[in-house]
């Protein structure tokens, strides 16, 4: 599978995701945001980081980049688009995904391991994942997902909620919600299920020696 990682000024997880993609045999290319053409690719990744220093609103400036027009075209043709952390914030600002990511409820930057439950099984991203609960890392200041009741209902009805924060045994409780996200939401899909935005970082969990290998399930599922 061919992948392209877009780099914005202030991206800082671009190499981590490239490393993870290469580890699982994706043919990956890096692309600067000022480019006006995407290489031939199946998957576009908007990586984590602090694009444009989080000026104005997180992801808002990157969402107006030249390459984003091409990313939107790619997604309209059914191409896969994955936004992790700041990438999720950028997807929200482009309007490709609904809702918004507000500041964390307790106003603190959170950097810790969390458990997430896979709540969507029929997208390309998760269909092969057998594990219901994954241990992934989060590191963000604006991950508090919010949307009005109508949007939440639509997300539920269309099976667009991809991941929820949970405890080690998969219980979705208030205690296991790190940032105040509505319905414990950690990641969502678009209606067609080809665009995924999520706050946790699977690319940080691809080496058992460092801390966890739970990212493997995600990349392997994506490959098949």
């Amino acid at each position: 599978m061919k992948s392209t990682v877009i780099i914005f000024p202030g991206s800082n997880c671009d190499r981590d995701i490239a490393n993870a993609l290469q580890k699982y045999n994706f043919q990956n290319k890096m692309l600067w945001h000022n480019e006006t053409e995407l290489p031939k690719t199946d998957l576009v990744v908007l990586p984590g980081g602090f694009s444009y220093g989080d000026y104005l609103r997180t992801g808002s400036i990157a969402a107006k980049s030249k390459i984003i027009t091409e990313v939107i075209k790619h997604s309209n043709k059914g191409g896969l688009v994955l936004g992790i952390c700041n990438g999720f914030q950028i997807l929200i600002e482009t309007g490709l995904l609904p809702g918004i990511l507000l500041r964390n409820k307790k106003l603190k930057f959170i950097s810790k391991d969390v458990y997430v439950k896979v709540t969507n099984k029929n997208s390309k991203y998760f269909k092969e994942i057998k594990q219901k609960v994954l241990k992934w890392h989060i590191a963000h200041n604006e991950g508090n997902f919010f949307a009005n009741k109508n949007i939440i209902k639509k997300l539920q009805d269309n099976d667009q909620i991809a991941l929820k924060y949970c405890d080690a045994s998969g219980g979705i409780k208030q205690d296991s919600n790190p940032n105040g996200s509505i319905e414990n939401i950690a990641g969502i899909l678009n209606e067609q299920k080809n665009i995924l935005g999520m706050m946790p970082h699977p690319e940080r969990a691809v080496n058992e020696d460092i801390y966890s290998n739970d990212g493997k399930f995600f990349f392997e599922s994506l490959l098949t």
Partner: peptide
């Protein structure tokens, strides 16, 4: 177009 996100 830029300064606000009309959702919030």
């Amino acid at each position: 177009k830029l300064l606000t996100n009309s959702i919030v």
